[in-house]
Design a protein around this nucleic acid. Sequence first.
DNA 1: TTAGGTGCAAACGTTTTGCAACTTG
DNA 2: CAAGTTGCAAAACGTTTGCACCTAA
Lengths: 152, 152
Amino acid sequence: MGEHAERDVEQLRDRLNDYMTRHGLRSTEQRRVVTEKFFASDGHLSIEDLLDRVRIEEPKIGYATVYRTLKLLKECGLAFERHFGDGVSRYEVAWQDEHHDHLICVECEKIIEFEDEAIEKLQREVASRHGFRLVRHKLELYGICPSCQARR
Amino acid sequence: MGEHAERDVEQLRDRLNDYMTRHGLRSTEQRRVVTEKFFASDGHLSIEDLLDRVRIEEPKIGYATVYRTLKLLKECGLAFERHFGDGVSRYEVAWQDEHHDHLICVECEKIIEFEDEAIEKLQREVASRHGFRLVRHKLELYGICPSCQARR
DNA sequence: TTAGGTGCAAACGTTTTGCAACTTG
DNA sequence: CAAGTTGCAAAACGTTTGCACCTAA
């Protein structure tokens, strides 16, 4: 979450180019636009969200290309695919060694990211209490957001 | 996970009946079969899994009924819907005051359940800091268990 | 030149819905 | 009886794919 410096984006671009070169893939205008819009996004985009942004710059790009580009980004570890309540896949940029958790409104599907070092410390304690070496974790809190509470 | 006593199932039945009465819904043979097979299951069932089991007892029941019954169970909080990688929704029984906190070994797949009141307290704090009323949470810790560490 | 990539539309698999017939309270 | 429920098939939905044409290397 939060802001990401241009050099972080640069790093993503490098990793992507590297992957494409190693696999004999080609760098096209469509891929450039899709990945740039994706890297510039903050949050959890659906394909449609992303396509909307992409089409501002390149109106002819279609669904298939966005799907295919995101599949590529998943393969090289630059995008995570997430599934919340609705039937839609959402994607987020895999900034390196960033990791955060999600607070999700069960009514309007709004998603808020957070990080809490105190919780993570306790997670490490739980793990070590059971003799585990912790690798990663997933924490999702589901609730009703302020505006949905007010709407009742 | 693990075993659930008949009285736990009884409690689910009661909550369902209660919900149906309050909402003027009717108790039908189809609903009875679908909910019983669901409550008797352990794990994450797809609609098709469940329909297979249901049809052993009532071969005429169709997809739509199972979908509609599970929607009902979700509404009254007796079922959780989960989405993994594939395009299929899977459902699990929402046993009362069971918290879905799991410590999972990434090598041998062993699953340990735990509860940690300190973590839950912090979760409630995070939620309220964002103005959310917390409904439920999901926490999964992935790591390497003691025996898999020793095996290296 | 050629392996890859694109856009379109058709295909796909899952889930939802409209409707006539049926059942519950 | 009225209102809810069912099963069927059709529709809707997000996603993938086949294919003819295009383009980067």
